[in-house]
Amino acid sequence: MLIKRLNPLKNRIFGMLTGSFRNSKRINLLESLPRDSEIKVLITRPNHRLGNQLLITPLIQEINKQFPNCKIHLIVNGNLSYILLSNYHCVETIFNLPKKPFNNIIDYLKKSISLISNQYDIAIVGCEDSNSSKIFVKLSRAKFKIYNSGTTKLNRPEHIAKIPIYNLRKFLGPSDYLTDRYPKLSIKLSRQEIEKGNQRIKALFNSNKKTICIFTFATGNKCLSKKWWLKFYKELKTEFTDFNVLEILPNENVSQINYESVHFYSNNLREIASVIENSVVFIGADSGIMHLSSSTNTTTFGLFNVTDPKTYGPYGGNNIPLDTNSVKLSEIIERIKEAIF
């Protein structure tokens, strides 16, 4: 409890410290790096949450596109990235720091020292709002260190996954950062995984109907009420009689529709993604599973009522973020119809 109380003070102190960090003095020379060279790149995003780790997948794709022979190292917390990024062959090393550094200080220091002993061509902050991301870039032995886009804000995106890509493009040449095309989140499912997801759905439903996925859970105030979800579920069943409705359950094993629908749970995130991949749409509140859905090719409807959808919403493909404070339930149903039919 004491640590939680001290967090605001800690963040202010570290914010003042990292606010003074500047991109490498000769950062403009980054443009001269040969695109076919086997460069080493460090991405720092020491956070253990599912969504935050998926949100760096567009940056990984961008780096790999710009430098096809690159080797990428990551700083994250926990072990999720080993699972989420298992099909990203450009990712060579993952420094998985402990989720709770103060409880595992020796392991934390060992991995931090191991990281600092490496040399990199580029080190880039995975999230501009993360003080720890900036600190690890500062500590790294990188030729080019990128914290932000500098003073240029032309066409700067609002989405948290796009900002580090914009920052990188800014120093790769003027034509790069002016484009508004950004990679979307991707978990890179294999054909075999997708087929297993198809077989999973067939085992859950004794029909040839297409499937709509819903995820009714979210943390804290982001979780919409049971009243809202029960009304929404009733409308889904009424308006989409030719479709299966599958509820994906969270680790907490709770349901805002009281388990009224066929439901599915797995502790394998790639299996959950493969099931979503075989669905026509996914509807869920702002959560890690919403970002997991956004990392598939299935149209994702993200329901927001607290956080800013412009910053965290699903983008790319036909994905749609919706603010439930202003969008009526009937409008959501109509948007789903447009996506399906």
Rank of each mutant, 00 (worst) to 15 (best):
D180L: 08
L154T: 13
S117V: 02
G197V: 11
F232A: 10
H89R: 13
I332A: 01
P8T: 07
Y120S: 00
K111M: 09
T299A: 09
N11S: 11
S330T: 13
T238Q: 12
K138L: 09
I60H: 02
I146T: 11
N131I: 05
L303D: 01
R335S: 10
T57M: 04
K226S: 13
I105Q: 05
D286Y: 01
V327F: 01
T241P: 00
K143C: 02
S326P: 00
Y315D: 01
K227E: 14
Y88C: 07
P34Y: 08
N267G: 06
K71N: 08
T299I: 14
R5Q: 12
L84M: 06
W229Y: 06
I83K: 14
R169Y: 11
N87G: 05
R200G: 00
E62A: 09
L85F: 15
L249M: 11
F102Q: 11
I289Q: 00
E260G: 12
G126P: 03
F144L: 06
L55N: 06
C70T: 14
K100E: 13
P183Q: 09
S186Q: 10
H159G: 03
W228L: 01
I336R: 01
K134Y: 03
F215M: 02
N96A: 14
E247T: 10
M290I: 02
E260A: 14
F304D: 00
T57H: 02
E247M: 09
E239R: 04
K209C: 06
K210G: 04
K310C: 09
Y147G: 09
Y315P: 02
N208Y: 12
A273G: 07
C213R: 01
N104P: 01
K234H: 12
Q119K: 12
R12H: 05
F21V: 08
L303I: 00
Q192I: 14
T179R: 12
W229D: 06
E338K: 15
S24P: 13
L172K: 11
I135E: 01
A285I: 00
S133V: 06
V327Y: 02
P68H: 07
L224H: 07
C223I: 00
P250V: 03
Y265H: 15
N318W: 05
E247D: 07
I13E: 01
S117M: 06
S117R: 15
K227A: 10
S326H: 11
S330A: 10
S186C: 13
I94Q: 02
P101Y: 13
V275D: 00
E195R: 04
P58V: 14
S24T: 15
K4N: 12
L230H: 07
A273P: 03
P157I: 11
T44C: 13
